[in-house]
Design a protein around this nucleic acid. Structure first.
Lengths: 233, 233
DNA sequence: CCATGAATCAAACGATTGATTGAATCATAC
DNA sequence: GTATGATTCAATCAATCGTTTGATTCATGG
Protein backbone atom coordinates (compact mmCIF):
# COMPACT_ATOMS: atom_id res chain seq x y z
CA UNK A 1 0.00 0.00 0.00
CA UNK A 2 3.03 2.26 -0.19
CA UNK A 3 4.87 3.94 -3.06
CA UNK A 4 3.27 3.37 -6.46
CA UNK A 5 5.12 1.30 -9.03
CA UNK A 6 5.89 3.68 -11.88
CA UNK A 7 4.42 1.92 -14.87
CA UNK A 8 1.85 4.38 -16.10
CA UNK A 9 2.98 7.76 -17.50
CA UNK A 10 1.01 9.88 -15.02
CA UNK A 11 -2.34 9.37 -13.38
CA UNK A 12 -3.15 13.06 -13.49
CA UNK A 13 -3.54 13.53 -9.76
CA UNK A 14 0.18 14.02 -9.11
CA UNK A 15 0.31 16.59 -11.91
CA UNK A 16 -2.60 18.52 -10.48
CA UNK A 17 -0.82 18.54 -7.14
CA UNK A 18 2.40 19.82 -8.73
CA UNK A 19 0.57 22.62 -10.51
CA UNK A 20 -1.34 23.64 -7.41
CA UNK A 21 1.78 23.57 -5.26
CA UNK A 22 3.74 25.62 -7.81
CA UNK A 23 1.12 28.35 -7.87
CA UNK A 24 0.66 28.42 -4.12
CA UNK A 25 4.39 28.51 -3.43
CA UNK A 26 4.66 31.64 -5.54
CA UNK A 27 1.76 33.23 -3.75
CA UNK A 28 2.60 32.39 -0.13
CA UNK A 29 6.04 30.79 0.03
CA UNK A 30 6.92 27.28 1.10
CA UNK A 31 6.24 27.39 4.80
CA UNK A 32 3.02 29.34 4.58
CA UNK A 33 1.60 26.94 2.00
CA UNK A 34 -0.05 24.06 3.82
CA UNK A 35 -0.75 20.57 2.56
CA UNK A 36 -4.44 21.27 2.92
CA UNK A 37 -4.21 24.34 0.69
CA UNK A 38 -2.41 22.31 -1.96
CA UNK A 39 -4.70 19.29 -1.97
CA UNK A 40 -7.77 21.47 -1.77
CA UNK A 41 -6.71 23.44 -4.85
CA UNK A 42 -5.78 20.24 -6.66
CA UNK A 43 -9.10 18.62 -5.80
CA UNK A 44 -7.31 15.79 -4.07
CA UNK A 45 -7.36 14.18 -0.68
CA UNK A 46 -5.05 15.44 2.03
CA UNK A 47 -3.22 12.11 2.02
CA UNK A 48 -2.50 12.27 -1.71
CA UNK A 49 0.71 14.29 -1.35
CA UNK A 50 2.31 11.79 0.98
CA UNK A 51 1.09 8.93 -1.16
CA UNK A 52 2.48 10.29 -4.42
CA UNK A 53 5.57 12.14 -3.25
CA UNK A 54 6.37 10.90 0.24
CA UNK A 55 6.53 14.23 2.05
CA UNK A 56 6.09 17.96 1.64
CA UNK A 57 9.82 18.47 1.17
CA UNK A 58 9.92 15.85 -1.55
CA UNK A 59 7.04 17.62 -3.25
CA UNK A 60 8.97 20.90 -3.22
CA UNK A 61 11.92 19.21 -4.87
CA UNK A 62 9.69 17.66 -7.50
CA UNK A 63 8.13 21.04 -8.31
CA UNK A 64 11.58 22.38 -9.11
CA UNK A 65 12.99 19.31 -10.78
CA UNK A 66 10.12 19.13 -13.24
CA UNK A 67 10.91 22.53 -14.76
CA UNK A 68 14.53 23.16 -13.89
CA UNK A 69 15.89 20.07 -15.58
CA UNK A 70 14.22 21.13 -18.79
CA UNK A 71 15.39 24.75 -18.48
CA UNK A 72 19.04 23.82 -18.02
CA UNK A 73 18.78 21.21 -20.77
CA UNK A 74 17.68 23.96 -23.17
CA UNK A 75 20.42 26.26 -21.95
CA UNK A 76 23.12 23.68 -22.51
CA UNK A 77 21.68 22.74 -25.89
CA UNK A 78 21.97 26.36 -27.02
CA UNK A 79 25.52 26.55 -25.72
CA UNK A 80 26.38 23.33 -27.53
CA UNK A 81 25.04 24.73 -30.76
CA UNK A 82 26.94 27.99 -30.37
CA UNK A 83 30.18 26.17 -29.67
CA UNK A 84 29.66 23.87 -32.61
CA UNK A 85 29.14 26.84 -34.92
CA UNK A 86 32.21 28.61 -33.55
CA UNK A 87 34.46 25.65 -34.38
CA UNK A 88 36.75 26.13 -31.43
CA UNK A 89 36.89 29.93 -31.48
CA UNK A 90 35.81 31.79 -28.32
CA UNK A 91 32.17 32.82 -28.29
CA UNK A 92 30.92 36.36 -28.15
CA UNK A 93 29.89 37.31 -24.61
CA UNK A 94 26.55 38.55 -25.85
CA UNK A 95 25.76 35.12 -27.28
CA UNK A 96 26.64 33.40 -24.03
CA UNK A 97 24.58 35.77 -21.94
CA UNK A 98 21.67 35.41 -24.31
CA UNK A 99 21.84 31.64 -24.18
CA UNK A 100 21.74 31.59 -20.40
CA UNK A 101 19.43 34.44 -19.48
CA UNK A 102 17.42 34.61 -22.67
CA UNK A 103 16.34 31.01 -22.29
CA UNK A 104 15.11 31.75 -18.78
CA UNK A 105 13.14 34.74 -19.99
CA UNK A 106 11.60 32.71 -22.76
CA UNK A 107 10.32 30.27 -20.20
CA UNK A 108 9.10 33.18 -18.09
CA UNK A 109 7.20 34.54 -21.07
CA UNK A 110 5.26 31.30 -21.43
CA UNK A 111 2.11 31.95 -19.46
CA UNK A 112 0.25 29.07 -21.07
CA UNK A 113 2.05 26.14 -19.51
CA UNK A 114 2.95 27.55 -16.13
CA UNK A 115 6.44 28.62 -17.13
CA UNK A 116 5.79 32.16 -15.97
CA UNK A 117 4.57 30.99 -12.59
CA UNK A 118 7.59 28.79 -12.12
CA UNK A 119 10.13 31.42 -13.05
CA UNK A 120 8.66 33.81 -10.53
CA UNK A 121 9.03 31.06 -7.97
CA UNK A 122 12.58 30.32 -9.03
CA UNK A 123 13.60 33.96 -8.86
CA UNK A 124 12.59 34.30 -5.28
CA UNK A 125 14.00 30.93 -4.32
CA UNK A 126 17.58 31.88 -5.14
CA UNK A 127 17.64 33.66 -1.80
CA UNK A 128 15.61 31.04 0.05
CA UNK A 129 16.97 30.42 3.54
CA UNK A 130 15.73 26.85 3.66
CA UNK A 131 18.81 24.67 3.59
CA UNK A 132 17.70 21.66 1.66
CA UNK A 133 16.07 23.74 -1.08
CA UNK A 134 19.28 25.66 -1.61
CA UNK A 135 21.41 22.56 -1.76
CA UNK A 136 19.05 20.94 -4.19
CA UNK A 137 19.05 24.00 -6.45
CA UNK A 138 22.84 24.16 -6.36
CA UNK A 139 23.13 20.54 -7.48
CA UNK A 140 20.59 21.05 -10.23
CA UNK A 141 22.51 24.10 -11.48
CA UNK A 142 26.05 22.85 -11.05
CA UNK A 143 26.69 21.61 -14.59
CA UNK A 144 25.12 24.56 -16.39
CA UNK A 145 26.95 27.14 -14.26
CA UNK A 146 30.25 25.35 -14.80
CA UNK A 147 29.82 25.22 -18.56
CA UNK A 148 28.70 28.84 -18.95
CA UNK A 149 31.41 30.19 -16.67
CA UNK A 150 34.03 28.34 -18.67
CA UNK A 151 32.63 29.81 -21.87
CA UNK A 152 32.74 33.31 -20.38
CA UNK A 153 36.30 32.83 -19.20
CA UNK A 154 37.31 31.92 -22.75
CA UNK A 155 35.31 34.77 -24.23
CA UNK A 156 36.89 37.35 -21.94
CA UNK A 157 40.47 36.18 -21.44
CA UNK A 158 41.70 39.60 -20.31
CA UNK A 159 39.14 39.95 -17.53
CA UNK A 160 40.03 38.47 -14.15
CA UNK A 161 37.95 35.38 -13.54
CA UNK A 162 36.86 36.64 -10.18
CA UNK A 163 35.41 39.71 -11.83
CA UNK A 164 33.46 37.55 -14.27
CA UNK A 165 32.18 35.48 -11.37
CA UNK A 166 30.85 38.52 -9.58
CA UNK A 167 29.27 39.97 -12.67
CA UNK A 168 27.60 36.69 -13.42
CA UNK A 169 26.27 36.86 -9.88
CA UNK A 170 25.01 40.40 -10.39
CA UNK A 171 23.34 39.36 -13.63
CA UNK A 172 21.51 36.59 -11.84
CA UNK A 173 20.17 39.17 -9.42
CA UNK A 174 19.00 41.52 -12.14
CA UNK A 175 17.27 38.67 -13.94
CA UNK A 176 15.50 37.55 -10.80
CA UNK A 177 14.05 40.99 -10.32
CA UNK A 178 13.20 41.27 -13.97
CA UNK A 179 11.10 38.13 -13.81
CA UNK A 180 9.61 38.88 -10.45
CA UNK A 181 8.65 42.10 -12.20
CA UNK A 182 6.03 44.29 -10.72
CA UNK A 183 5.03 41.78 -8.11
CA UNK A 184 8.46 41.58 -6.53
CA UNK A 185 7.99 44.64 -4.45
CA UNK A 186 5.34 47.28 -4.75
CA UNK A 187 8.09 49.87 -4.78
CA UNK A 188 7.20 50.75 -8.32
CA UNK A 189 3.50 50.09 -8.02
CA UNK A 190 1.54 51.89 -10.68
CA UNK A 191 4.70 53.07 -12.36
CA UNK A 192 5.05 50.28 -14.90
CA UNK A 193 2.87 51.26 -17.83
CA UNK A 194 4.18 48.46 -19.96
CA UNK A 195 4.91 45.06 -18.48
CA UNK A 196 4.83 43.28 -21.83
CA UNK A 197 7.16 40.32 -21.57
CA UNK A 198 8.25 40.59 -25.19
CA UNK A 199 9.85 43.95 -24.45
CA UNK A 200 11.44 42.67 -21.26
CA UNK A 201 13.99 40.47 -23.00
CA UNK A 202 15.76 43.23 -24.99
CA UNK A 203 15.53 45.53 -21.99
CA UNK A 204 17.21 43.10 -19.67
CA UNK A 205 19.73 42.00 -22.27
CA UNK A 206 20.92 45.57 -22.84
CA UNK A 207 21.31 46.09 -19.14
CA UNK A 208 23.15 42.83 -18.55
CA UNK A 209 25.58 43.33 -21.41
CA UNK A 210 26.18 46.90 -20.33
CA UNK A 211 27.07 45.66 -16.88
CA UNK A 212 29.20 42.79 -18.11
CA UNK A 213 31.21 45.03 -20.43
CA UNK A 214 31.53 47.94 -18.02
CA UNK A 215 35.00 49.32 -17.31
CA UNK A 216 36.71 47.23 -14.68
CA UNK A 217 36.85 48.77 -11.22
CA UNK A 218 40.43 49.92 -11.10
CA UNK A 219 42.40 52.97 -10.15
CA UNK A 220 39.97 55.29 -11.88
CA UNK A 221 37.11 56.65 -9.88
CA UNK A 222 33.95 54.96 -11.12
CA UNK A 223 31.61 57.27 -12.96
CA UNK A 224 34.21 59.94 -13.59
CA UNK A 225 35.08 58.84 -17.04
CA UNK A 226 31.95 59.31 -19.11
CA UNK A 227 29.14 61.62 -19.87
CA UNK A 228 26.84 59.24 -18.08
CA UNK A 229 24.04 58.99 -20.61
CA UNK A 230 23.00 55.83 -22.43
CA UNK A 231 23.74 55.93 -26.13
CA UNK A 232 21.20 55.33 -28.83
CA UNK A 233 22.18 52.30 -30.87
CA UNK B 1 -0.27 45.39 33.01
CA UNK B 2 -0.28 45.95 29.29
CA UNK B 3 1.84 48.14 27.00
CA UNK B 4 4.75 49.83 28.75
CA UNK B 5 4.70 53.58 29.06
CA UNK B 6 7.65 54.84 27.02
CA UNK B 7 9.54 56.92 29.51
CA UNK B 8 12.84 55.10 29.68
CA UNK B 9 15.13 54.96 26.64
CA UNK B 10 15.24 51.13 26.43
CA UNK B 11 15.26 48.45 29.06
CA UNK B 12 17.60 46.30 27.05
CA UNK B 13 15.33 43.27 26.75
CA UNK B 14 13.47 44.57 23.72
CA UNK B 15 16.78 45.31 22.02
CA UNK B 16 18.06 41.81 22.68
CA UNK B 17 14.87 40.47 21.16
CA UNK B 18 15.27 42.64 18.06
CA UNK B 19 18.87 41.52 17.57
CA UNK B 20 18.00 37.87 18.03
CA UNK B 21 15.03 38.09 15.69
CA UNK B 22 17.09 39.86 13.03
CA UNK B 23 19.75 37.17 13.04
CA UNK B 24 17.26 34.30 13.08
CA UNK B 25 15.16 35.80 10.29
CA UNK B 26 18.24 35.85 8.06
CA UNK B 27 19.05 32.27 8.95
CA UNK B 28 15.62 30.66 8.67
CA UNK B 29 13.14 33.18 7.29
CA UNK B 30 10.12 34.66 9.02
CA UNK B 31 7.80 31.69 9.16
CA UNK B 32 10.42 29.17 10.15
CA UNK B 33 11.63 31.36 12.99
CA UNK B 34 9.53 30.65 16.07
CA UNK B 35 8.90 32.84 19.05
CA UNK B 36 10.63 30.28 21.20
CA UNK B 37 13.78 30.42 19.08
CA UNK B 38 13.81 34.21 19.38
CA UNK B 39 13.22 34.47 23.09
CA UNK B 40 15.61 31.62 23.79
CA UNK B 41 18.41 33.34 21.88
CA UNK B 42 17.59 36.65 23.52
CA UNK B 43 17.60 35.07 27.00
CA UNK B 44 14.05 36.24 27.55
CA UNK B 45 10.77 34.67 28.47
CA UNK B 46 8.47 33.43 25.73
CA UNK B 47 5.91 36.05 26.70
CA UNK B 48 8.36 38.91 26.34
CA UNK B 49 7.75 39.42 22.61
CA UNK B 50 4.03 39.90 23.02
CA UNK B 51 4.60 42.09 26.03
CA UNK B 52 7.06 44.43 24.34
CA UNK B 53 5.84 44.38 20.75
CA UNK B 54 2.31 43.01 20.79
CA UNK B 55 2.68 40.23 18.25
CA UNK B 56 5.16 38.44 16.03
CA UNK B 57 4.11 40.52 13.01
CA UNK B 58 4.66 43.74 14.93
CA UNK B 59 8.10 42.47 15.89
CA UNK B 60 8.96 41.87 12.24
CA UNK B 61 7.94 45.43 11.39
CA UNK B 62 10.03 46.79 14.23
CA UNK B 63 13.09 44.84 13.08
CA UNK B 64 12.86 46.57 9.72
CA UNK B 65 11.84 49.99 10.91
CA UNK B 66 14.78 50.23 13.28
CA UNK B 67 17.35 50.01 10.45
CA UNK B 68 15.43 51.04 7.35
CA UNK B 69 14.42 54.46 8.60
CA UNK B 70 18.05 55.26 9.27
CA UNK B 71 19.21 53.87 5.92
CA UNK B 72 16.78 55.95 3.89
CA UNK B 73 17.50 58.99 6.03
CA UNK B 74 21.18 58.71 5.10
CA UNK B 75 20.31 58.20 1.45
CA UNK B 76 18.15 61.29 1.32
CA UNK B 77 20.72 63.31 3.24
CA UNK B 78 23.34 62.46 0.61
CA UNK B 79 20.95 63.36 -2.17
CA UNK B 80 20.15 66.65 -0.47
CA UNK B 81 23.82 67.47 -0.26
CA UNK B 82 24.43 66.60 -3.90
CA UNK B 83 21.54 68.74 -5.04
CA UNK B 84 22.66 71.64 -2.89
CA UNK B 85 26.14 71.47 -4.40
CA UNK B 86 24.73 71.29 -7.93
CA UNK B 87 22.79 74.53 -7.45
CA UNK B 88 19.88 73.45 -9.64
CA UNK B 89 21.88 71.68 -12.34
CA UNK B 90 21.05 68.04 -13.06
CA UNK B 91 23.19 65.56 -11.14
CA UNK B 92 25.53 63.04 -12.69
CA UNK B 93 23.91 59.59 -12.82
CA UNK B 94 26.95 58.05 -11.18
CA UNK B 95 26.51 60.31 -8.16
CA UNK B 96 22.86 59.39 -7.81
CA UNK B 97 23.53 55.69 -8.10
CA UNK B 98 26.33 55.94 -5.59
CA UNK B 99 24.15 57.82 -3.12
CA UNK B 100 21.44 55.19 -3.26
CA UNK B 101 23.32 51.92 -3.61
CA UNK B 102 26.59 52.97 -2.07
CA UNK B 103 24.88 53.91 1.16
CA UNK B 104 23.29 50.48 1.32
CA UNK B 105 26.61 48.79 0.76
CA UNK B 106 28.21 50.87 3.45
CA UNK B 107 25.63 49.63 5.90
CA UNK B 108 26.19 46.10 4.63
CA UNK B 109 29.90 46.46 5.26
CA UNK B 110 29.32 47.27 8.91
CA UNK B 111 29.61 43.91 10.60
CA UNK B 112 30.08 45.44 14.04
CA UNK B 113 26.59 46.77 14.67
CA UNK B 114 24.49 44.24 12.80
CA UNK B 115 24.26 46.25 9.62
CA UNK B 116 25.57 43.35 7.58
CA UNK B 117 23.04 40.97 9.04
CA UNK B 118 20.20 43.35 8.35
CA UNK B 119 21.15 44.05 4.75
CA UNK B 120 21.23 40.33 4.01
CA UNK B 121 17.75 40.14 5.49
CA UNK B 122 16.58 43.14 3.51
CA UNK B 123 17.93 41.77 0.24
CA UNK B 124 15.96 38.59 0.49
CA UNK B 125 12.85 40.33 1.75
CA UNK B 126 12.38 42.32 -1.46
CA UNK B 127 10.89 39.17 -2.92
CA UNK B 128 9.06 38.11 0.22
CA UNK B 129 5.60 36.76 -0.56
CA UNK B 130 4.17 37.80 2.79
CA UNK B 131 1.71 40.56 2.03
CA UNK B 132 1.98 42.79 5.04
CA UNK B 133 5.77 42.77 4.98
CA UNK B 134 5.79 43.91 1.37
CA UNK B 135 3.32 46.68 1.96
CA UNK B 136 5.25 47.88 4.97
CA UNK B 137 8.51 47.92 3.01
CA UNK B 138 6.87 49.80 0.15
CA UNK B 139 5.62 52.51 2.49
CA UNK B 140 8.98 52.79 4.18
CA UNK B 141 10.68 53.19 0.78
CA UNK B 142 8.14 55.39 -0.97
CA UNK B 143 9.76 58.77 -0.35
CA UNK B 144 13.31 57.71 -1.14
CA UNK B 145 12.31 55.95 -4.36
CA UNK B 146 10.33 58.98 -5.48
CA UNK B 147 13.18 61.37 -4.84
CA UNK B 148 15.86 59.25 -6.49
CA UNK B 149 13.73 58.49 -9.52
CA UNK B 150 13.04 62.16 -10.02
CA UNK B 151 16.75 62.87 -9.80
CA UNK B 152 17.49 60.18 -12.39
CA UNK B 153 14.79 61.52 -14.71
CA UNK B 154 16.44 64.92 -14.59
CA UNK B 155 19.91 63.47 -15.01
CA UNK B 156 18.90 61.45 -18.06
CA UNK B 157 16.34 63.60 -19.88
CA UNK B 158 16.80 61.79 -23.20
CA UNK B 159 16.10 58.34 -21.78
CA UNK B 160 12.47 57.21 -21.62
CA UNK B 161 11.30 57.21 -18.01
CA UNK B 162 10.05 53.68 -18.31
CA UNK B 163 13.52 52.55 -19.28
CA UNK B 164 14.99 54.25 -16.23
CA UNK B 165 12.38 52.61 -14.08
CA UNK B 166 13.28 49.15 -15.32
CA UNK B 167 16.99 49.74 -14.98
CA UNK B 168 16.53 50.98 -11.45
CA UNK B 169 14.64 47.77 -10.84
CA UNK B 170 17.46 45.68 -12.34
CA UNK B 171 19.98 47.55 -10.21
CA UNK B 172 18.02 46.70 -7.09
CA UNK B 173 18.24 43.05 -8.05
CA UNK B 174 21.96 43.14 -8.66
CA UNK B 175 22.51 44.88 -5.34
CA UNK B 176 20.44 42.32 -3.48
CA UNK B 177 22.56 39.51 -4.82
CA UNK B 178 25.71 41.44 -4.17
CA UNK B 179 24.87 41.77 -0.52
CA UNK B 180 23.51 38.27 -0.17
CA UNK B 181 26.90 37.40 -1.59
CA UNK B 182 28.16 33.93 -1.29
CA UNK B 183 25.41 32.82 1.00
CA UNK B 184 22.62 33.66 -1.43
CA UNK B 185 22.94 30.46 -3.35
CA UNK B 186 25.73 27.93 -3.22
CA UNK B 187 25.91 28.16 -6.99
CA UNK B 188 29.32 29.67 -6.72
CA UNK B 189 30.39 27.82 -3.61
CA UNK B 190 34.12 27.70 -3.28
CA UNK B 191 34.58 29.99 -6.27
CA UNK B 192 34.80 33.29 -4.45
CA UNK B 193 38.38 33.70 -3.36
CA UNK B 194 37.86 37.24 -2.27
CA UNK B 195 34.66 38.30 -0.57
CA UNK B 196 36.19 41.42 0.95
CA UNK B 197 33.38 43.94 1.31
CA UNK B 198 35.66 46.90 0.61
CA UNK B 199 36.18 45.59 -2.95
CA UNK B 200 32.51 44.85 -3.41
CA UNK B 201 31.48 48.51 -3.62
CA UNK B 202 33.60 49.42 -6.67
CA UNK B 203 32.75 46.10 -8.30
CA UNK B 204 29.03 46.60 -7.97
CA UNK B 205 29.22 50.26 -8.87
CA UNK B 206 31.00 49.55 -12.14
CA UNK B 207 28.43 46.95 -13.03
CA UNK B 208 25.45 49.13 -12.14
CA UNK B 209 26.71 52.14 -14.06
CA UNK B 210 27.55 49.96 -17.02
CA UNK B 211 24.02 48.66 -17.04
CA UNK B 212 22.45 52.05 -16.51
CA UNK B 213 24.40 53.61 -19.36
CA UNK B 214 24.08 50.68 -21.74
CA UNK B 215 22.75 51.36 -25.25
CA UNK B 216 19.00 51.50 -25.23
CA UNK B 217 17.25 48.45 -26.60
CA UNK B 218 16.15 49.69 -29.98
CA UNK B 219 16.12 48.53 -33.53
CA UNK B 220 19.66 47.25 -33.31
CA UNK B 221 20.16 43.66 -32.28
CA UNK B 222 21.59 43.65 -28.78
CA UNK B 223 25.18 42.53 -28.59
CA UNK B 224 25.87 43.07 -32.28
CA UNK B 225 27.43 46.47 -31.94
CA UNK B 226 30.53 46.00 -29.85
CA UNK B 227 33.58 43.89 -29.35
CA UNK B 228 32.07 42.68 -26.11
CA UNK B 229 35.05 43.03 -23.82
CA UNK B 230 35.23 45.31 -20.79
CA UNK B 231 37.65 48.18 -21.19
CA UNK B 232 40.39 49.00 -18.77
CA UNK B 233 39.83 52.42 -17.24
C1' DC C 1 8.33 50.56 54.72
C1' DC C 2 5.10 50.15 51.78
C1' DA C 3 2.55 51.37 47.52
C1' DT C 4 2.63 51.30 42.47
C1' DG C 5 3.32 49.88 38.11
C1' DA C 6 6.65 47.82 34.93
C1' DA C 7 8.75 43.52 33.86
C1' DT C 8 9.37 38.58 34.07
C1' DC C 9 7.97 34.01 34.79
C1' DA C 10 5.96 29.08 34.39
C1' DA C 11 2.06 27.07 32.62
C1' DA C 12 -1.41 26.45 29.71
C1' DC C 13 -4.64 27.81 25.80
C1' DG C 14 -6.96 26.57 21.24
C1' DA C 15 -5.65 26.17 16.61
C1' DT C 16 -3.13 24.26 13.01
C1' DT C 17 0.66 21.78 11.20
C1' DG C 18 2.60 17.45 8.38
C1' DA C 19 1.94 12.82 8.61
C1' DT C 20 -0.38 8.24 9.15
C1' DT C 21 -3.87 4.82 9.51
C1' DG C 22 -7.07 1.16 7.84
C1' DA C 23 -10.95 0.74 5.25
C1' DA C 24 -13.28 1.76 0.82
C1' DT C 25 -13.08 2.37 -4.14
C1' DC C 26 -11.32 1.89 -8.62
C1' DA C 27 -9.13 -0.22 -12.79
C1' DT C 28 -7.23 -4.00 -14.93
C1' DA C 29 -5.95 -8.92 -16.05
C1' DC C 30 -7.13 -13.53 -16.25
C1' DG D 1 -16.78 -12.57 -12.00
C1' DT D 2 -13.22 -12.44 -9.22
C1' DA D 3 -8.49 -11.58 -7.78
C1' DT D 4 -4.89 -8.01 -7.44
C1' DG D 5 -2.77 -3.99 -6.75
C1' DA D 6 -3.09 1.02 -7.35
C1' DT D 7 -5.52 4.92 -5.61
C1' DT D 8 -8.65 7.58 -2.75
C1' DC D 9 -11.00 8.56 1.42
C1' DA D 10 -12.45 10.17 6.26
C1' DA D 11 -10.55 10.20 10.60
C1' DT D 12 -7.01 10.87 13.62
C1' DC D 13 -2.17 11.22 15.34
C1' DA D 14 1.47 13.73 18.07
C1' DA D 15 3.92 17.93 17.66
C1' DT D 16 4.33 22.63 17.44
C1' DC D 17 2.66 27.11 16.52
C1' DG D 18 1.50 32.17 18.45
C1' DT D 19 -0.78 33.86 22.15
C1' DT D 20 -2.72 34.51 26.83
C1' DT D 21 -3.12 34.08 31.68
C1' DG D 22 -2.40 35.08 36.61
C1' DA D 23 1.02 35.09 39.82
C1' DT D 24 5.61 36.75 41.02
C1' DT D 25 9.66 39.69 41.03
C1' DC D 26 11.83 44.03 40.55
C1' DA D 27 12.66 49.09 40.75
C1' DT D 28 11.37 53.45 42.29
C1' DG D 29 9.13 57.45 44.75
C1' DG D 30 6.97 59.24 48.74
Amino acid sequence: MRAPTERQPAPETSDRILDAAEALFVEHGFEATTMRMITSRADANIAAVNYHFGSKDALIQEVFKRRLTELNRQRLAKLDRLEAEAKGAPLKPSRIVEAFFGTALEMAADTEHGGHTFMRLLGRTYTEPNGFVRQFLAEEYAEAVERFLTALYRALPDVPREEILWRFHFMMGAMSYAIAGTDALQLFAGKFDDAAPERLLPRLMSFLLGGLRAPLPGQGVPGENGKGAPTRP
